[in-house]
Amino acid sequence: MPETTIETTTTASPAVGDRTTARSRSAALVRPVRTVAILGAVGALVAAIALPAFASASGPADAGPVTAERLAADNAQSIVVASEATQAPTTREQFIATTPDEIEKRKAEEAAAARAAAAAATVSSSSRPSIAGLALVAPGSGAVRYPVTSFTPGEGPGSGRGHEGWDMIAPEGTPIYAAAAGTVTASAESIGGYGVSIMIMSNLNGTMVETRYGHMVYGSRMVEVGDQVAAGQLIGLVGNTGNSYGSHLHFEVRIGGSVLDPEPWLAANAG
């Protein structure tokens, strides 16, 4: 019996192979598309953030140079200050008084300044009284001299009205001399009730003695504070300034702050 050979051939189905190939091609196409989409999203996000800032910084293409005025106009709430600007100094005098107390105080200060200016104008406008023909040194040789050499004795201290000196009555313009050598401690055109006056501190045998000379003529003072004077040196002229009612020298003597009667003191010490 002849041998029979049966050949079996296995052939893949065309439908199955086509489906596998399609899936492979689809997967290969999806991957690059997805990557492109992601990169596009990231780029859009970056552009959305960066472009406004860049646009505000760069400004329009036709914009001119940036100046202080332009910056101020673009941002009304900003303040542009030049580097050279400085604040002008201010003082209290630039402010106007508003309260009643301040107004009264200011008025008093202005009135005092006006009085001082008037007094200064009076002194500056009037020339110093002439001392021609007057003795520059009082007669005598002792450490103590009479401040006026020719006078009429007037009221002394202790009159009950606070009078602490001796009034030596003499015509206006009579020379006044230092009663003792010493240092001038006060010299002014107005010192309270003394009017034009001078005060001198002297050391007499270890005792500090202060002498005061009041009511002198305006502009007649011959010495200033700090000057050293000699006994009998001409220092001014008799007048009628301050609390005075008639020309005379108001002469005071003080030792240790206590008031002495000048009349007996001069009689005992003047040479």
Rank of each mutant, 00 (worst) to 15 (best):
E84L: 05
D74K: 12
A88L: 03
T90D: 09
A72E: 14
A61T: 02
E69L: 14
E69A: 15
A88Q: 13
A85L: 06
A68P: 12
A97W: 07
E104T: 14
T86F: 07
A68F: 07
P65C: 01
T86Y: 00
K105I: 04
Q94F: 00
I103R: 12
E93L: 05
D101V: 08
I96E: 10
Q87K: 12
V80D: 05
D74F: 12
P89G: 04
A73C: 07
V80A: 09
V80K: 09
S78W: 15
S78P: 06
P100T: 05
N75V: 15
A85E: 02
E69T: 12
R92E: 09
D74M: 13
K105Y: 01
A88S: 07
I96L: 01
T90I: 11
A82V: 05
T86K: 01
E104S: 11
A85D: 05
T90C: 08
N75Q: 13
P65V: 13
V80T: 12
I79F: 08
I96F: 02
V80H: 05
Q94N: 02
A76Q: 11
E102G: 06
N75K: 14
I103D: 08
A76K: 10
A97E: 13
D101E: 15
T86A: 11
T91L: 04
E104N: 10
D101R: 09
T86E: 11
E102W: 01
E93P: 00
A88F: 03
I96Y: 04
F95R: 07
S83L: 13
V80R: 01
R70D: 03
F95I: 07
A61I: 02
A72F: 08
A97G: 11
I103K: 11
K105A: 13
G64T: 13
V66N: 07
D101L: 09
V66H: 03
R92L: 06
A63M: 03
A63L: 03
L71C: 07
A97I: 01
I103V: 15
R92A: 07
K105W: 00
I79A: 12
A63W: 01
T99G: 05
T98Y: 00
A97T: 12
I96N: 03
Q77F: 12
T99N: 08
S83Y: 10
I96V: 07
E84Q: 10
A61W: 04
D101T: 08
A82W: 03
P100Y: 06
S78T: 14
V81P: 04
T98K: 05
S83K: 06
T99E: 04
A85T: 13
E93G: 04
V81R: 09
D62I: 00
A63C: 03
G64D: 13
T86I: 05
V80S: 02
G64W: 14
D62G: 04
